[in-house]
């Protein structure tokens, strides 16, 4: 579904990602692990179009996306979350979610002003969906709070559901479990598994090995900008060989 082919990204003389190749199968949960500074987030940014790669290409569903703008890539169904979940700080949780859906008709000046039946229907549908998503993370009652006032863990959950408002086909999660307490972490695992069953493909970066191993079908290891080894299956023996026994 998503193919990263020989991607190399330099920042000046620093090679952040070197000749990285990986593929994400449809309906799978793929993990990407590696030490700090290994280039995981840079690779995400290349996939999402924030940085164009110096070499290599990114393909999504048989279409080359590595030369498209970030907003256009999001429009094709590739959503990503951010490591630091700032969101839109001075807007409410509800507005953070409502702003998200793609190609809103009311974003035009004239249609936004007239707010005809179609724009109203669209707004109503988006609000309903936002409430449903907030319900799954238990934050319906807090929908009018500003995102800047949320705790790190809460902001991360809002970050996740905000990107789900996009109805993506693949979701790239940058450390979704960081700063989330163990109780919430269990809920997060349930939510991510449920999303996969609903047909969403996931690519997950995390440091938390037990979290990654419990969740993922395939795991890639990124180290010093290189993918080593190519792919580690979730077979416990293989994992033990490469990473040691999970805690």
């Amino acid at each position: 579904m998503l193919e990263v082919k020989g991607v190399t990204k330099y920042f000046g003389g620093l090679c952040a990602v070197h000749d990285c190749t990986l593929s994400v199968e449809a309906d799978s949960i793929t993990g990407l692990i590696g030490p700090n500074g290994a280039g995981k987030t840079t690779l995400f940014n290349v996939i999402a179009g924030v940085y164009p790669p110096n070499q290599g290409e990114v393909w999504f569903r048989g279409e080359k996306i590595s030369d498209a703008a970030p907003w256009a890539i999001a429009g094709k169904g590739v959503a990503r979350t951010f490591q630091t979940p700032h969101g839109f700080p001075q807007m409410t949780i509800m507005e953070n979610l409502m702003v998200s859906p793609l190609r809103q008709k009311g974003e035009g000046v004239f249609r936004g002003l007239l707010r005809g039946a179609r724009v109203r229907a669209e707004e109503k549908a988006h609000r309903r969906k936002a409430l449903e998503l907030l319900d799954t993370i238990g934050m319906v009652d807090r929908r009018n709070e500003l995102v800047v006032n949320l705790s790190a863990g809460e902001a991360r959950m809002v970050e996740l559901v905000r990107q789900l408002m996009l109805d993506p086909q693949i979701l790239l999660l940058d450390e979704p479990a960081a700063g989330i307490n163990p109780a919430l972490c269990g809920k997060l695992l349930d939510l991510l598994r449920r999303l996969r069953h609903e047909g969403l493909t996931l690519l997950v970066i995390d440091h938390n090995l037990s979290f990654i191993m419990e969740l993922c079908d395939t795991i890639y290891v990124l180290s010093h900008g290189e993918v080593t080894p190519a792919a580690v299956s979730a077979d416990p023996k293989v994992i033990e060989a490469y990473l040691g026994r999970a805690a």
Binding site: W71, A74, A79, F82, F88, M91, V99, L102, E107, V109
Partner: peptide, 29 residues
């Protein structure tokens, strides 16, 4: 004012608040 509280104003405020996130939700900034 009408534009401000609708989808158009909301998208503009989102861009002001965080351009990167606005791009990540498909807004042609």
């Amino acid at each position: 004012s009408r534009l401000h509280w609708g989808p158009f104003g909301r998208a503009l405020r989102a861009i002001r608040e965080n351009e990167q996130v606005a791009l990540s939700v498909g807004k042609n900034v």
